[in-house]
């Protein structure tokens, strides 16, 4: 029905905008390694994944990285490469998770998996592409721990968002 798909498009656009906003906010925060971010925008990715499926989530994530970097002014910079790598890795991990255990996983599981994939890719890119110094790997445990924590936090946030999203729709259906 037209209204559902319009609503669908509006929501997806809204999510994309939200993701971009979070991306810009994260750009404002300092981080131990240039371009390494907590990946809170993954909240949006996970919510979209669970409501609309992986292809839409990939769209939103791609838009987020592209438009976000254009707006912040980091397009094609190392920061952009890091963002893109993180987002790509998160999407791959999410696809795999969905394939393996889609029925059983909730937002928390997806978020944690995506956050670790995101951070691992960023560390790898930082170490092997930008700063070929073994000391980078010494930061890995700290960064991965932070990713785990942020993954849990964003997972809980995403799950809560999803519960609240379902409620108005069911109310509207009545």
């Amino acid at each position: 029905m037209p209204s559902v798909s319009e609503e669908h498009d509006r929501l997806v656009a809204g999510f994309a905008a939200l993701a971009i906003a979070i991306h810009i906010l994260e750009a404002a925060f300092p981080s131990p390694l240039p371009g390494v971010k907590p990946g809170l925008a993954n909240v949006v990715t996970v919510v979209v994944l669970m409501r609309y499926g992986w292809p839409t989530a990939a769209w939103v994530a791609g838009l987020r990285v592209l438009v976000g970097s254009l707006l912040v002014g980091t397009f094609l910079s190392p920061t952009f490469v890091m963002s893109a790598a993180g987002a790509a890795a998160a999407l791959i991990v999410l696809a795999a998770a969905r394939l393996c255990a889609g029925r059983h996983l909730g937002a928390l599981g997806y978020s944690v998996a995506a956050a670790l994939g995101h951070m691992a890719a960023q560390i790898a890119v930082a170490r092997y592409v930008f700063i070929p110094h073994p000391a980078i790997l010494a930061l890995a445990p700290f960064l991965l721990t932070a990713a785990l924590v942020f993954g849990i936090v964003s997972g809980v946030i995403a799950a809560t968002v999803l519960v609240n999203l379902d409620r108005p729709t069911s109310q509207a259906a009545r």
């Binding site: 909730g106 928390l108 991965l144 809980v156 799950a159």
Partner: peptide
């Protein structure tokens, strides 16, 4: 849908191990 499912816990444990 509950906020946390058993599979979620498995993922978190796995991540913690990593």
């Amino acid at each position: 849908m509950t906020v946390v499912r058993p599979a979620d816990v498995a993922v978190v444990v796995l991540a913690a191990l990593l």
